[in-house]
């Protein structure tokens, strides 16, 4: 038996919305520690990895490891029926072919029950090694979203270059070219909200090219976190991570574009 409950069901809806445009379906792997999911886009260029810790749930019970094969578009249809402040419970039997989703309003005056049919999904899993990245940038997620959206109107590839002082996003296209630089915030600024700052940890300067189409896709997760962390190395996939307070994180990996 697998059972979990979230006070803010809305968070789960936002999570599914952050995944469903990149991957159509995937396996929720549930074990005693939490829920994880990994999925690649159809062109095998981007990967999304979701890790939810049991501590983030108000109730969590997993007697045996369970794999829930889920079509995200179908799940999203059911989650649409959930109220913005509803509590969400998910239940599945060990060998069941469906999972139940229960939405309950704050005052318990409305309860909705949905059964989602599960799928057998045979998915390739990739081993993502723990790596020391050459540059790690933390910035406001809304700022990253705006940059990706605005630059994609000019070109389809962004060059991200990082130095100790700043991170620069450059783009070029038929109409011309441009760049936007964000400077590292002053470290002495104790009054400012940390989530508003740009923090750069640098081992050595890095420059890599990425397809904006995918980055724009990743920014669907902006609603989950005030900040985003970008980790870059040389000839390595970019990691774009959104952390949710105590619930866990959603990470996106994007293979670079290499100059021919």
């Amino acid at each position: 038996m697998f059972e979990c409950a979230l006070i803010q069901g809305e968070l789960f809806r936002k999570l599914i919305a952050s995944v469903q445009d990149l991957v159509q379906d995937g396996n929720f792997m549930c074990d005693a520690n939490g829920i994880s999911l990994q999925g690649m886009d159809s062109s095998h260029v981007a990967l999304v990895a979701l890790a939810l810790k049991k501590e983030g749930f108000v109730e969590y019970r997993c007697d045996r490891d369970v794999t829930l094969g889920i079509n995200f578009a179908n799940l999203a249809k059911m989650l649409k029926c959930m109220g913005a402040k509803d509590r969400l419970s998910i239940r599945a039997q060990d060998e069941g072919d469906s999972a139940s989703f229960v939405f309950e309003s704050e005052d318990s005056s409305r309860v909705s029950n949905f059964e989602l049919k599960l799928m057998q999904i045979d998915q390739e899993q990739l081993g993502v090694p723990e790596t020391q990245y050459k540059a790690v940038i933390r910035m406001p997620s809304s700022e990253f979203q705006r940059i990706c959206k605005d630059l994609s109107a000019i070109g389809d590839t962004v060059s991200i270059s990082v130095t100790k002082e700043a991170v620069k996003f450059s783009v070029g296209g038929d109409i011309g070219s441009g760049d936007m630089s964000l400077r590292q915030s002053e470290s002495g600024d104790v009054d400012g909200d940390d989530s508003e700052k740009v923090m750069i940890e640098l081992e050595e300067p890095v420059q890599q090219n990425f397809a904006l189409r995918y980055l724009n896709n990743f920014t669907k997760a902006t609603a989950l976190s005030k900040t985003v962390t970008l980790s870059l190395g040389t000839d390595m996939p970019l990691v774009t991570e959104y952390k949710m307070d105590n619930l866990g994180s959603i990470r996106y990996y994007l293979a670079p574009k290499i100059d021919e």
Binding site: S43, V128, N209
Partner: peptide, 14 residues
């Protein structure tokens, strides 16, 4: 001109 790499170049299948 730049070429889009695939993730399998960097990560191995498990």
């Amino acid at each position: 001109n730049s070429m889009q790499m695939e993730l399998s170049t960097f990560f191995s299948k498990v």
